[in-house]
Amino acid sequence: MAEFLTSDFVLGRLNYWFFIFLMMIGLYIVIAKSNLMKKIVGLNIFQTSVFMLYISIGKVSGGTAPIFPMDMKVDPTVTYSNPLPHVLILTAIVVGVATTSLGLALMVRIRENFYTIEEHEIAEQEQEIMLSELGLKKEEDV
C-alpha cells in the first residue's frame, strides 16, 4: 500500500484523475439536469474530457509535436509525441460537432411539438397524451 502514496505515483496519475473529474461533471449534468440544452453542453464536456484523456496518453515527456523538419531529415535523438491519438481525436472532434448539431436539430423539433425543452415537462405531456388516447379507446370499446 505504501507505493500508492508516493508523490511520483500521485503526480503521474494526477492528469487521469483530473480528466475523470471533468468527465464526471459532464455525466452528472447529463443525468441530473432536465434541460435538454444543458444536457448537450454536458455531453460536450464529457466528450472533450475523453479527448484529453486520449491526448494525454499519447504524450511523451521531453517529446515535441509530431511534425518533422521541412527537409525530412529526421533527427533520431528528438522524441515525438505519439501521433496516432491525435489523428483519432482530430476526426472525433469534427464528427462530434456534426452529431451535436443533429442533437440540436432534434431539440428544435421537440420544442416545436411540445413547446418546452425540459425533460420532465415533456414526460408529463406524453403521459397526458397517452392517457387521453387510452380514454378514447375505452369509449370506443363501450
Partner: peptide, 12 residues
Amino acid sequence: DYSPGGGFQAGV
C-alpha cells in the same frame, strides 16, 4: 502536409 492543419480544419 507541412504544418498543423488539413481538410477538417480547413473545412470548418
